[in-house]
Design a protein around this nucleic acid. Sequence first.
DNA 1: AATGAATGAGATTTCATTCAT
DNA 2: TATGAATGAAATCTCATTCAT
Lengths: 200, 200, 200, 200
Amino acid sequence: MSPRKINKEEKRREIALSCSDLIHEVGMKKLTVAEVAKTAGIGKGTIYEYFENKEDIIFEIINMHIEQHHEEFTKEVAKLNTIEDKFELFFDFVLNNSEENMKHFNGYKEFLSIVLAEENPSMKEFNCEKNEFFGGELIKILEDSIKKGEIKEDALNLADGILTYHKGLALRKMSQANFDVRADYEKFIGTILQLIEIKK
Amino acid sequence: MSPRKINKEEKRREIALSCSDLIHEVGMKKLTVAEVAKTAGIGKGTIYEYFENKEDIIFEIINMHIEQHHEEFTKEVAKLNTIEDKFELFFDFVLNNSEENMKHFNGYKEFLSIVLAEENPSMKEFNCEKNEFFGGELIKILEDSIKKGEIKEDALNLADGILTYHKGLALRKMSQANFDVRADYEKFIGTILQLIEIKK
Amino acid sequence: MSPRKINKEEKRREIALSCSDLIHEVGMKKLTVAEVAKTAGIGKGTIYEYFENKEDIIFEIINMHIEQHHEEFTKEVAKLNTIEDKFELFFDFVLNNSEENMKHFNGYKEFLSIVLAEENPSMKEFNCEKNEFFGGELIKILEDSIKKGEIKEDALNLADGILTYHKGLALRKMSQANFDVRADYEKFIGTILQLIEIKK
Amino acid sequence: MSPRKINKEEKRREIALSCSDLIHEVGMKKLTVAEVAKTAGIGKGTIYEYFENKEDIIFEIINMHIEQHHEEFTKEVAKLNTIEDKFELFFDFVLNNSEENMKHFNGYKEFLSIVLAEENPSMKEFNCEKNEFFGGELIKILEDSIKKGEIKEDALNLADGILTYHKGLALRKMSQANFDVRADYEKFIGTILQLIEIKK
DNA sequence: AATGAATGAGATTTCATTCAT
DNA sequence: TATGAATGAAATCTCATTCAT
């Protein structure tokens, strides 16, 4: 036997990568295994050598996008100083209406639609796991600001809630026609910031 | 005189009412028109005398549930005094894990799944419209509390955001395994209340 | 009982007349009894007081159109002298591409489609009966021309065949993309006329 | 070597062939995909590996019949000498009342019904294309006869018209009760032949 | 390791006609 | 004579997954 034991994980990545755009074009629901196979340039049956099922393929693709997103966030947040700017970046995913961002936002919307359909219990866990990153980042932002004396110490108690508020913004943007995300954001986060700011 | 002209609106209600539970048992997606007809004790074709399509049936049923919910809320909130209690009631839909409430909560989850699937533009508008009620109620609660001198006047600026936070709680409960709704709620709303309370 | 025994035949006409245009707008197949009733300003059930079934309604409407057509033909043919002109009029139904005529031609097409579907044996007889008129007219045209010494006496033998050819033209116009009716007509009828003409 | 890649065109034929009679038994309209699959001894889904849709199946079956018919015609016409016999063969499709021929004739009738219903634009083109064969054959017959000195040279001008007359005969046989095809044929074609014959 | 042919369940909606009032 | 509420049958096509080669 040859030593070129193909790394399954690598091949999964490779297949997912080739479908990175496809998923935005046709959507997760409409994405067919046949298309994935064709796009990846392999046989339909071969897909099942590397993935449990269609859901598993979607996991891998979304996972890829999320990791990319996390990486970018980490890079960008390091450049910022004030808490206002950091919040702005933190909420960028829901505030930014650029075509590029909306592509991802709509992907997330579709993903949620499937998660809520409850047919996929494993997606719920996956979703949970991926949420921890931003929770941690938010705490870092607040701790940093507290250390600098910008805001009161007990603002840390708001971390989880702000993350939840972030979800709420996303959901309303997704599901309510004419919902003004920025207005809601500025009014609420603005007020919160005023309340926790240490006035000098 | 025989009633030759049937009250369509009434019949819609009647049919929807008979399927009130059915929708919880089998779910909105799996609900078949055949089942609806059978449950209502009428022919499949008759359904289409009163509803445009399957979606329309679901509208009517959900609408019924929502109006019921609004009514109950209005009745209950009137009995309460402190802002803490009113908030507790306001968030009851996401906090309450009783079988009865979870039935409705899961119904809402399924409804959202469909709204997010974007296949039904009319549902998005319907959803939007039905959201206004709670926005108004929250403002009433806050205004009342301000009037009583319990909280600062600028707390009113938080109304929209709290509604959004409510959505966020719902979404996280729906989509994240092991999310502790109450913990998040108590920590966040508790902190907020502290921040806006007028200390005596 | 009052002597105003409503003339059924008259009411049939009246209903048919009110749907005269409707049938061109939506087509015979798509025409629903409900629409007919609404257009006629009566109840759905009432329709069945005057008509056996939907087919019967269509009969009446088509019958009306045909009789109108016959009347016009009789009136026009009387004004013409040469056999060429009379043939032109005789074939007008297939040659004329005016919007007005195409409306009727397409109606006939749809009628044929139903007749050929064979679901309606009675339509076949109806169709047969209505065909006799033009057979008779054609014979008149030829006899007239023979009497005048324009064409040979045995041209009369072509009468049935020319009627059949007329049907053929209609069918080809209906079913073959890009069929040039006039070219076929002029070449064939022109040649026939040459063959039967009495050269002086 | 195992045949991993199936010849799609061949399989189409194979499936169509197995349903060759089925289409005559139940008719094109009533033909269900389920029946086709069962008759072909394969799964319903497999049908859609080889055909776009139901219409496509019908195309293939009709196409098969037509090609068969063309082949037989070509074979038979070669055996004949006089123009009378060739015409008889040419019109056989409308004249022949044998059970076998009527099976095909009725199939054509049903096909026409669908073409005229205009629901299938592609069928109109298909129909057009398949019509060219007989046009060419008729010209061959006439040219051959002219060459032999049987008929006048300008009889060639009648070719298109005779084809159209053939359609007319078919249509009348299909749509008029009690239409005597043979009588019409003998009288008309007989007269035409007399007119174009070169008397010796 | 790779392939791709085969599978089959599942649900919406229309509309002519009837018949109780 | 007039009405209109009730009826219910019928057939398409998609696509994730399997397994023989």
